[in-house]
Design a protein around this nucleic acid. Structure first.
Lengths: 145, 145
DNA sequence: ATAAAAAAGGATAAAAAGGTATTAATATCA
DNA sequence: TGATATTAATACCTTTTTATCCTTTTTTAT
């Protein structure tokens, strides 16, 4: 079990892929996205539908259709993706799963994990979706293995 | 979805509970543990069996039996529990789920998450199971809500 | 012997992940 | 304009994993 759910991993990879593929206009089809990030196509379709409904990505049907990101979407932070898919348990939840864990009623690990949760949130909140377009275009970063 | 699996959350809470309940000798039964950490008893039983096989907790059958921790076990780091239950994906895995993500073939988030993974591992590796016994005995920390 | 406890092995339920087939939208072309 | 091909959206189904529950067996102190 990693930090994110498998669904969320695919979601982030897919959005990164769409972002850099459509940075200079145009759209990219589900098949190309699935191939580009090595994910099962039907499963990814469902994920992208969801992200589309929530405005994280944009889509167009018909010939020359596909997925893309408008300029606003490119500037959104990664937290938007993670919250849309996994919710905010990673940022706000107790490490030991206690519902009422808080400053006044802390679990043993509350204080230690507070710092880590904040750091993860900070990282994702300050990183824009479009940030890696250059690296991805030049092949420095990988999305499929 | 939190940082750990539900199984792992129960495991850590149970070990903390056993640790502080048996710090001055004696054993504690599965029923009391389940009550003490508010977990489903049969599920917890299986978890503790597993931890017992792996030497994380000790157990004794029969009358006056139950679970306990020997002095060595009390000094083990929390990483031992997490690795026994969830494996080491949290410490070594790629945030985006890529099998071959590494320094030479990094995913876009590789460098950022390297720091976080290290921090989580550091925290768990330097925290001994018995560390919270005092707080738990005095009721500062909660394990059941 | 007996009773108290954990160990063990399944059975069941729920959620996550993955797959198939159909429908709706739309650009393009005849 | 109307037909067609292309593409995402929708609905439903299967598999796998995670979580939970139950029943029986083994061990052991008394």
């Amino acid at each position: 079990m990693g930090v994110f759910s498998k669904t969320c991993e695919y979601a982030i990879r897919a959005v990164f892929f769409i972002a850099h593929k459509t940075a200079s206009g145009g759209r990219v089809g589900i098949k190309e996205v699935a191939g580009g990030i090595d994910s099962p196509e039907p499963f990814l379709a469902k994920i992208l539908q969801d992200l589309s409904r929530k405005g994280i990505v944009q889509s167009a049907k018909g010939p020359n259709g596909g997925f893309y990101l408008d300029t606003d979407a490119l500037k959104r932070p990664l937290t938007d993706i993670v919250e849309a898919v996994d919710g905010n348990a990673l940022f706000t939840g107790c490490a030991l799963g206690l519902k009422q864990c808080s400053e006044v009623n802390p679990c043993p690990l509350h204080n230690q994990f507070k710092a880590i949760r904040t750091e993860i949130h900070q990282l994702l909140a300050t990183t824009e979706i479009g940030k890696f377009n250059q690296e991805l275009l030049s092949g420095i970063n990988s999305l499929r293995k």
